[in-house]
Simulated assay, not measured.
Amino acid sequence: MKRLSILAVASLMFLGQSCNPNTNNENSANMIDTTKTEHYTFELSDKVTRQKVTFKNRYGITLTGDLYIPKNAGNEPLPALAISGPFGAVKEQSSGLYANQMAERGFVVLAFDPSYTGESDGEPRNVASPDISTEDFSSAVDFLGIQKNIDRNKIGIIGICGWGGFSLNATAIDKRIKAVATTSMYDMTRVMSKGYNDVVTLEDRAKTLEQLGEQRWKDAENGNPAYQPAYNELSGGEAQFQIEYHDYYMTPRGYHERSVNSGNAWTITTPISFMNMPILTYLKEISPRPMLLIAGENAHSRYFSEDIYKNASEPKELMIIPNAVHVDLYDKVDIIPFDKLETFFKEHLK
């Protein structure tokens, strides 16, 4: 394949530490029954139970998640949260860590694998769509709202990184969601179509779309999608945020064998769906439901949260975490403001 233009390069840089496509592409139906040795990147709280669940989205794709329930839950229905992200991660990583922490604080929490990734179904593997990702959040709300131990009028969502944008998009369209919070938020359609800090020119964009179109013909001829080239080791000279991603996804800190970003790969044509489908067109329709945006002071992604805050309607809040970088809000429990998240959701899910 010809070398991609600056826009595609920017997209691939964010899409993670890519590797060969043949790794961990098993059908998730074969992986539903996990054992006690299942790999999680965090320890389960002794105050919480965790159980594997499945549910279908509106497109008929079966999603797999982990449901975290407080052990001291009484007989009254509890408020609930759905969590996913970062983009290319799985529920055994950040979203599960968040779910574990929030369940300790009294919520029933569903952390789930998005369509086409992790243990969730969908073929081909490791492809993404802003529409389907938004739908995945609403289908998680479907699931939570029919559980007897959950108050369906008290459901919120949390989106981490690229799933921050999808969580806002889902909240705008799904009025059942009563409050939304994001951490290290990315607008994936913006970064794919305009590059980081919107530096991509119309000429760059046209060139990328031409190359992606050519790749579609190659995929059609081969009968299968091609995957991004290997990028699972640092070679020197990478941007600081790439080093930070590597430190999370490719080290024992956050590595998970099913994560797209942990040495697996997105399809080359994954950016296509994001190039002309802005997901935050109706951002103001989240109001009057509350929004909490959390970003690191030194995060390369900080401008996404700041711009959303400027453009959103009240009630809204922007919380900047001093000295934190983007991936600090993935797993550093001493930095992630879980007390703030608890207060926010308990105040607004009532």
Rank of each mutant, 00 (worst) to 15 (best):
A99C: 02
E119P: 00
A226T: 06
P322N: 12
L318E: 14
P77Y: 10
I132D: 00
D334A: 12
Y282M: 04
E119Q: 07
N22R: 07
P70F: 02
V108Q: 00
A172I: 02
S45T: 07
Y231L: 09
K2D: 15
K154F: 09
T171L: 07
T34M: 11
E347S: 14
D46E: 15
E306D: 13
S287E: 08
S193H: 03
G88C: 09
D198N: 11
P271R: 00
L168I: 11
I83C: 10
P322K: 09
Q242C: 10
S11Y: 06
T54R: 09
K148F: 00
S167P: 03
A226Q: 08
T201Q: 02
V53L: 11
T270A: 15
P288V: 13
I321E: 12
P229E: 15
S28N: 04
T182H: 07
R253D: 15
P86F: 14
I83N: 09
M277W: 02
S167V: 01
P70M: 06
K340E: 14
L67P: 02
M185D: 01
T117F: 01
S305K: 01
L293M: 14
Q17N: 15
Q228H: 08
F137M: 06
D331V: 09
N222D: 15
L110Y: 00
R105I: 12
H300I: 13
A172V: 04
E244P: 01
T41C: 15
G236M: 09
M102S: 06
E43M: 04
N261R: 10
Q147I: 04
G164W: 10
D328T: 10
D151M: 04
K310P: 00
D136A: 08
Y227W: 13
E104K: 06
S120P: 11
S273R: 13
E244S: 10
R58V: 09
A299G: 14
R3L: 14
Q101Y: 13
E297Y: 12
G65C: 08
P278Q: 08
L202I: 08
S287N: 08
D334Y: 07
E43H: 03
N169M: 06
T269R: 04
I155H: 07
G296P: 02
L292S: 04
F345A: 13
K178C: 03
L67M: 03
T134L: 07
Y309S: 01
F241C: 08
E233P: 00
A295C: 12
P278S: 12
S193K: 11
V141Y: 02
K218P: 00
S94A: 15
R258D: 05
K175P: 04
K36E: 15
G296I: 02
M188F: 05
Y98K: 09
P278K: 05
N25F: 02
P21R: 12
L4H: 11
R258W: 12
S193W: 10
Y282D: 15
I336P: 13
A10K: 07
K218W: 01
L15E: 06
H39M: 13
T117I: 14
M13N: 11
L78R: 11
M185A: 10
F241V: 06
K91Q: 05
R190V: 05
